[in-house]
Amino acid sequence: MQLIECPYCGPREEAEYHYGGQAHVAYPADTAALSDVEWAAFLFFRDNPKGPFAERWLHSSGCRRWFNAVRDTATHQMLAVYRLDQPKPVIS
């Protein structure tokens, strides 16, 4: 049972959270202007790196707020957590 640091509540057990997939994938401003290929890329395609990955997390059984985290997908280690209004941290 991993501990995940909620930027608002502090460290809580992973079972309190829901995973929300890749972070920093904005809903397109003008969807009508997108080709089918571009729209499909937004709709279906996400990165799947081995290593640091910026993800969205929801503290669903806690403060119910969304935040972002950089997680190493190979080790599950949370390298950083940050609020949605904060920039993605640089992970060396």
């Binding site: 829901h18 929300g20 904005a26 809903y27 969205r56 929801l58 669903s60 119910r64 707020r65 969304w66 949605l84 209004d85």
Partner: peptide, 12 residues
């Protein structure tokens, strides 16, 4: 949850 997600993450 669905509505909250949009409000918090896309349309704050």
């Amino acid at each position: 949850d669905w509505m909250e997600e949009w409000v918090q993450t896309e349309w704050p």
